[in-house]
Write a protein that binds this DNA or RNA. Sequence first.
DNA 1: ACATAAAATGTAAGCGCTTACATTTATAAC
DNA 2: GTTATAAATGTAAGCGCTTACATTTTATGT
Lengths: 334, 334
Amino acid sequence: MATIYEVSKLAGVSLATVSRVMNNNANVSDATRKKVTAAMDELGYRPNSIAQSLASNCSNSVGLLVSELHGPFYGPMMSGIENTFRNQKKHLIIAAGHSNEEREKQGIEFLISRNCDGLILHVEAVSDDYLIKLSKSQVPFVLINRFISELSDRCIILNNIKGGYLATKHVLEQGHKQIAYISGPLWKKDAQDRLEGHKKALAEYGLPFDEQLLYQGDFMEASGFTGLKTLYQHAKPFSAVICANDEMATGAMASARELGLTLPDQLSIMGYDNVFFTRHVYPPLSTINYPINEMGKMAADWVLSHVYQKQTAPLQTVFEPELVVRQSITTNPQ
Amino acid sequence: MATIYEVSKLAGVSLATVSRVMNNNANVSDATRKKVTAAMDELGYRPNSIAQSLASNCSNSVGLLVSELHGPFYGPMMSGIENTFRNQKKHLIIAAGHSNEEREKQGIEFLISRNCDGLILHVEAVSDDYLIKLSKSQVPFVLINRFISELSDRCIILNNIKGGYLATKHVLEQGHKQIAYISGPLWKKDAQDRLEGHKKALAEYGLPFDEQLLYQGDFMEASGFTGLKTLYQHAKPFSAVICANDEMATGAMASARELGLTLPDQLSIMGYDNVFFTRHVYPPLSTINYPINEMGKMAADWVLSHVYQKQTAPLQTVFEPELVVRQSITTNPQ
DNA sequence: ACATAAAATGTAAGCGCTTACATTTATAAC
DNA sequence: GTTATAAATGTAAGCGCTTACATTTTATGT
């Protein structure tokens, strides 16, 4: 592989000049610029990005930590991020944290040790304090789907209270009066917020919130399954169940069928996230849209702006959810 | 950030010695090793991986090109790969090719320019010739889900003929006699192979293959939708349709319902890939398992072995599909 | 105690770039 | 034609490591 040295020799200029044309430095005459690019072409020269990084103290790489590389939620997020960065010649180093404190910390360590210029973090298990401490170290980072008030300017989040509110309001509007709720783990802020929105809608319709109709799940499919079963067997009757995410809604669907209920006639189910497979389940699931792809892009823009001083579209930290009506909610239940 | 120089000064040894303890070189006495690690701890030293890469001519990064970062197929593949590499302190740089020739080439260029030591490629649009030429350049790569005979030792593939065979055989065993087929784009080898397996099973049961019952799709959901509609309106009657992947099967399901058919009673549907949401559709889709996660791991092992000379489990290039029976196929259709 | 080999450590060059600073060349003003 | 100023180019010192080779220390055999 040709080096800058060989290019400079062929072009008959100094190393510095070659470097200047590479970096589009203004102070190069057209004539020499042409000589240099010609020499580059002739040699098939490609700059060594490692050497560039070492000399410029900028690796042009940004680290991304997500809980899982698979699963319906992270894919669209990564897509949005990758796209933005590739256009800017930055590259993405990806690691998985598996929603586990130790592994999330390891992942962050790993990315830092890889000289990332900035980090995009979707972490769940690591503590607020850890992140606040981290924010005082060298490497800048932005948080997706997590709010820490001390770090509020770098938290890209969804308005989950509103989302929870919209979901329940829709179900209420269809005439349901007995509504069960399967929440996420309530130590998580987003699970809390969604539930809070639910309560708010209930209150608005003059309905009391009933603890008996609440089941605390963990955002995973299985907990939707057992959640519905538990509610069905122990709680008072209900005509609709609202799930704090689509995975649990899916579990609840399976559970409902196992209980012999026909959907949606005998039970309406509402999801949250608008993960792509919600269109494909049967009946197609009504849910709340989580614009995760856009939020990924915004996180990338944040990095572009704060780390690389690039001009970007105005940064937005809180996104708004939207109701997506499909066919899992009946009107006027008996 | 402390450098190796400061560590060496604190420990009272030379740079080389510090480097040796970092790299676990055997020729370091226990006493000095201790001194050095103590100094490292005291300074909170972290080696600069960029400098290491430049000096050692090894970036410890491997590039991964997939068609999309989202979608049900690539997630599990990336997961398998990331996991293997992180344990080995290698890192993954990810780019998307979008099944488009230009973008795939760009992606490969991008990864190479990022000094990847090796590449894992899931490419669809780029030509065999291009890849053969690429194989003669510096950077080693392995191919997932693509077979090129000149490069056969670095192609990690599924036995798609067998998969196609298993799918059709299962449907035949349930008593179906009129079977439609929605294929992938037939310029793709995997689409061809799956269809070939289908024909083989038909032949084994003494049934002729009927061109009229074939629709050529493009592996995307929409083509499953229009495919079924087209077949239904123009072809002779059939009691089952086999789709060359799950996405198209999903489209076919939606289409069937729109045609007023109840599933699976009036139409059996078979998928391929065993993408995770196939459990969630209704009726749960019978399909062929594609062990993409394992294949991803194998690709990572290939790189570990060929690029980094690591000892790995024996390499396997062709994987076997398996039938997954769920509830989308009826028995003894009328 | 000595010679000899093996183990431990040090020296210094170099990986391929960037960039501050110095120098040369072109341009403008008089 | 000078001189002042700006533009273009060159020089050389790093960036933080690895590693071939040289040197010193330690262990081994007699």
